[in-house]
Simulated assay, not measured.
Amino acid sequence: MKQESKLKKILSPTFLADNAVVLIFVVITIAAIPVSGLPLNSILQEILTRIGRNCFLVFSLILPIMAGMGINFGMVLGAMAGQIGLIFAVDWNIVGVPGLVFASLIAIPIAALLGWLAGEILNRARGREMVTGYVLGFFMDGFYQFIVLYLMGAIIPIHSLNIVLSRGYGIRNTLTLDSVRQSLDHFIPLRIGSLNLPIMNYLVIGVLCLFIIWFRKTKLGQDMRAVGQNQAVAHAAGIPVDRTRILAIVISTILASLGQIIFLQNMGNIATYNAHKQTGFFAAAAILVGGASVSKASIPNVFIGTMLLHLMYIVVPRAGTNLFGDAMIGEYFRDAFSYAIIALALVIHAWRKRAQADAARSDLRGGVTEIKG
């Protein structure tokens, strides 16, 4: 009987709607793994590396979702701050983990300032926070380009000529991070069989998980949850709604700056003018693939989504190559699925909101549906 009830629950329309995105990705990846021809050890090594590299960035989205602000596409502002920190770490030639700490100390105040500005703007765009954050990222990218391309080396002192353009100012298009490359990944080396585990990355992510669990129980965390559920009720209860929303964006932007530093130290180089642009998109896709929505997200959503999304990124291009003889077709499939999953998640969220609104109106009418005609 219990098994039958569980099966009915799994096959119920509500469960399928709640987990449609996850189920689609599970089907896609399971179908693509054998077609790709990749050995399981290689796939597992890539997944372990990418979880350690990307999860911190995805975690930066949780608090704004909890505060009812949707997915913080403005997290690219934090990514810009993280890259500025790394540029100075390379310029000062600070090696290893101290270089990452130095980059973080520079990035955090910049990210906090940018997060505060973003929060002020998003408070004036209630109900349109996601699209506003997305456009804000493009807007602030112009300032970032101006600082890195013109001010650094001209007004902002840069000591190393190796990272400056030949004209004497501006940072090169690509910077190698030899001084900090994979310093966090290799800080606590562990090899199990043929697998290399980035233990320090996992420890940092574990500390962040504990922070989020603790933060949710604090007064500010409870305020964010209340604001996310109903702003009018939260305001009536004496909660400073605007301030709470701003703090959610500030913390998210700071975490995004640290996440970008962790991501780039693993990659070993920076595409100075482009590395930050898709940060919000890939993080949003990951958390939505994990079963989160624009109004609810949890720690398991981050891990599940990062694993499934990057599993698709690993196997689908190779599967496309084997099926069609062209690697680009696999890349097209990968991009199409990524964008489609964000669109599907937003459509499901809009459908749920409309269904809830219709149910609320029906309750106000005493459950009697109005008959037209």
Rank of each mutant, 00 (worst) to 15 (best):
A345E: 03
I65M: 08
I199V: 13
G78A: 07
A79P: 00
L264R: 14
T272N: 12
C209P: 04
G320Q: 09
A112Q: 09
I33Q: 11
R128F: 15
T49H: 12
A236G: 11
I314F: 10
A67Q: 10
I158M: 14
A112F: 12
N196H: 13
L197W: 10
Y134C: 02
A256G: 11
T253F: 06
Y144D: 05
L61T: 03
T29V: 13
S183T: 06
Y332H: 12
A107K: 00
I106T: 09
L364K: 15
V131T: 15
F282N: 04
L11M: 13
M69A: 07
S36M: 08
I158C: 11
A360M: 13
P300A: 08
T176E: 05
F333R: 11
L364A: 13
Y313A: 05
F59W: 07
I155H: 14
N266P: 14
L264Q: 09
I329A: 08
L161Q: 10
G259F: 07
F215E: 01
L57P: 03
S298R: 15
G85K: 04
Q145T: 06
G193H: 04
T253D: 02
F88P: 01
F59D: 04
V148I: 15
M130L: 03
V27N: 13
F211H: 09
G85W: 03
I270K: 11
A355E: 05
R352E: 05
M224G: 04
A226Q: 07
I348S: 02
T272R: 03
R361D: 15
V204A: 13
M152I: 01
V227L: 09
L308A: 08
V250Q: 10
L11Q: 13
G115L: 07
K2S: 11
A111W: 05
V148F: 14
V22M: 08
I213W: 08
L344M: 11
W351E: 12
I171H: 05
G142A: 13
P300G: 07
G70D: 02
L114F: 08
R245Q: 11
I341G: 00
T176F: 12
Q222V: 13
A234I: 09
V207M: 15
V22H: 00
G78R: 10
A111Q: 09
F282H: 04
M69G: 01
L258Y: 01
V97H: 05
H349N: 15
V347I: 06
